[in-house]
Design a protein around this nucleic acid. Structure first.
Length: 264
DNA sequence: GGCTTATGCGCAG
DNA sequence: TGCGCCTAAGCCA
């Protein structure tokens, strides 16, 4: 479930599991054999999340860059690990744990310059200390695309995905088709601040929950489908006004919104 | 067990 | 704009 919160959670996890000892690296699937050979036997200096990208600084100047895309996952196995089952792109092992990476969009080694270029291309990540919302604000000013499209653009804002975008727009009553450049400064500030809060909560819990705890309590349930206001709730009554939630495709992704709470 | 769907994104055309 | 990646969860039988 890879939006920014998943990535930062993995970075933390891998820092605590894999740092401090030489790691064995291999590519059972065969698509990362040369790369694995280059990092085999080296230590992990630090893992960090940047938007939806995972960057693993390896002892000796190389950085392992992983992007999970839609399908990518890491699995942890205790040592001694059983032989890999299925398509494991990278098996990375310490003495205690083994981490198997499957189905990533990107798994590659980068030199320092390429890492810099990658990071420069990304907008501010609300999960990173010192992230500068002014950069996101400036980027929005120059865009005519709908705000709902701009929020998924990783050069504007890094780490927000399809679930967070739908929920953020709902929480602030913003019409998804509003041109990005017409978003008011007050709404932007509120949006940024919610993004920080919700993504951080996601890192802590490992899932995306945007509904107010008081709301959930009032409905007397902690059903898993209570976690969102609009995402994947097509046709169901809005939790605030009971109007049926709408769905439409925008730039190839499903967009969900409440036509009443998010009217112009 | 099979089928559908998906939280992303680069690329061909 | 549509495809490919090729995993995993949720649903149904």
């Amino acid at each position: 479930m890879p939006e920014g919160h998943t990535i930062h959670r993995l970075a933390r996890r891998h820092n605590s599991l894999l740092r401090g000892e030489p790691l064995r690296a291999s590519s059972p699937q065969g698509r990362f054999v040369a790369g694995a050979a280059l990092i085999d036997g080296r230590q992990l200096v630090r893992a960090q999340g940047y938007g939806k990208h995972l960057l693993y600084e390896i002892e000796g100047a190389l950085t392992l860059h992983v992007h999970l895309g839609l399908y990518g996952t890491f699995n942890e196995l205790p040592q001694p690990a059983l032989p890999p089952v299925g398509q494991v792109r990278l098996r990375w092992e310490g003495s205690q744990v083994c981490c198997d990476l499957r189905g990533p969009t990107v798994c590659e080694l980068l030199e320092r310059d390429s890492v810099r270029r990658l990071v420069r291309r990304l907008g501010p990540d609300p999960l990173r200390r010192g992230a500068d919302p002014e950069r996101a604000w400036a980027a929005l000013q120059s865009r005519r695309v709908p705000i709902a499209a701009a929020l998924l653009d990783q050069t504007v804002l890094a780490g927000v995905g399809n679930v967070y975008r739908a929920e953020l727009l709902f929480l602030h009553g913003i019409e998804p088709t509003l041109p990005a450049r017409e978003l008011g400064r007050t709404d932007f500030d509120a949006l940024w601040s919610s993004a920080v809060t919700l993504l951080r909560a996601g890192v802590r819990s490992g899932r995306i929950v945007t509904t107010d705890p008081a709301d959930r309590e009032r409905r007397g349930s902690a059903r898993p489908d209570d976690a969102h206001y609009v995402y994947r709730r097509t046709g169901l009554p809005c939790r605030r006004c009971a109007t049926p939630i709408q769905r439409a495709e925008m730039a190839g992704r499903n967009l969900y919104w409440c036509p009443r709470c998010q009217a112009a």
